[in-house]
Design a protein around this nucleic acid. Structure first.
Lengths: 236, 236
DNA sequence: ACCTGAACACCGTTCAAGT
DNA sequence: ACCTGAACACCGTTCAAGT
């Protein structure tokens, strides 16, 4: 039976960049962005900080590698599928949506990462998987760049914000479920100043009913409609 | 002439939450997100950390207040204007776009802030200014929430990513201008693997030519088209 | 009520020394 | 080539003490 303890201190495999990044992802997932420290990492890997710095330049690079790994997995095309382009774009969008929901730290990291290095591989990877479907959609070539950029920006932005909202709902403690959390926000919106917030008050009820994924998809579809509608590719 | 030195150590006005937030914004603008430390803040305000903690609970609250102040200014409706709703939405979008371009730290903070407190005033403020125009656009009531959310998500997401890109261009050092930076990214994209990145390679040239604001606006217009096209408000 | 400033726990990173 | 672990500079935050 010799049950393995969850976190045995002995380290059999030697350290590697791969193992370090893996541990970083686990740490990010389990304790959040603030929980990824070199102290926690050295403990988990049963080593010292110097050993980590031998494989990784600094914390930023480590976060970059963690982000790239998770994103690569998320946007990977499922081998069998050859859906219509619209469906493929929805699939890529949901792939990222779910990845961010599963790894909430991705949201922050993606915006940080896209900024730090468009020369890195994260942006091209996402851009490519969306762009291929835009092309397949029959968008004229001079509209490819604008269409793909708009989709990518929306998907990353919206997925990040939905994930952030979901994270609150999760961290409320055992007594509060998602429904009652949305209720409280909805109620707060309904009590805003009637002059300054007439619109927000009017839709406060929708907040309670809305489905995150459905709403995320609605945005993707707005853009798809805009992209494929006649004349949409004209500039200016 | 008794010229006032830029940063005299004597502090005439007494400390206040307002002055602290103001100094935080200045610090964020001038030295970036990493530059906002309580050390730097105490020096600038000629005081001790305890004094700041008397007015502000912690660093998170300080960042929240800085964000809210700048956003409020950005989305404020210009009194004279009564443009068509489409133009108003473009104006709100550009207001946020420019605010983020001017205060790059806003991008990170907005996603952090929207997440931490939809009960706060940042989200409703943006939501309201966009939503009023959506209503004026004649979108049927059951589509208001989805349309406004999609626009808000796109605007915040895309503006943040454009600003991040712009920030790189800015930080390249005196020798490198924006044009040659885009050239280098464009060249890197053109050299990606032809099988894995056929689309990205094909549009690499567009990267060099593209105008950030124009492209940002194109995305807004895609969504506006999607929102106002027949049947767009039908759910799932 | 408002401010001072030393002190605390913790962080990322370095580096001489080991194998 | 790869790892150890003490040490360094810096961070956010606290709190007894002053006015």
């Amino acid at each position: 039976m010799a049950a393995r303890t969850g976190r045995s201190p002995r380290r059999t495999e030697s350290l590697s960049r791969e193992r370090i990044v893996e541990a970083a992802v686990e740490l990010l997932d389990s304790v959040g962005e603030g929980g990824l420290t070199f102290r926690a990492l050295t403990e988990r890997l049963a080593t010292g900080p110097g050993a980590i710095y031998w494989h990784v330049a600094n914390k930023g690079e480590l976060l970059g590698a963690a982000t790239e790994g998770v994103v690569a997995e998320a946007v990977a095309v499922k081998p069998g599928s050859a859906d219509a382009p619209r469906e493929e774009i929805r699939a890529v969008a949901f792939g990222l949506f779910d990845a961010i929901a599963e790894h909430p730290w991705l949201a922050t990291q993606l915006s940080a990462q896209l900024s730090r290095s468009p020369l890195g591989m994260v942006t091209p990877r996402i851009f490519e998987s969306i762009g291929r479907q835009v092309r397949a959609l029959g968008v004229p070539e001079d509209g490819w760049f604008a269409a793909t950029s708009a989709l990518m920006h929306y998907i990353l932005g919206a997925a990040g914000q939905h994930a952030a909202n979901a994270a609150i709902g999760r961290d409320l403690g055992p007594g509060v479920d998602r429904g009652s959390y949305l209720d409280s926000v909805s109620t707060a919106w309904a009590q805003l100043d009637p002059d300054e917030y007439s619109f927000t008050r009017a839709v406060a009820g929708r907040l309670r009913e809305h489905d995150d994924r459905e709403q995320f998809l609605a945005g993707v579809d707005f853009i798809l409609t805009g992209i494929t509608s006649r004349g949409a590719t004209a500039t200016g």
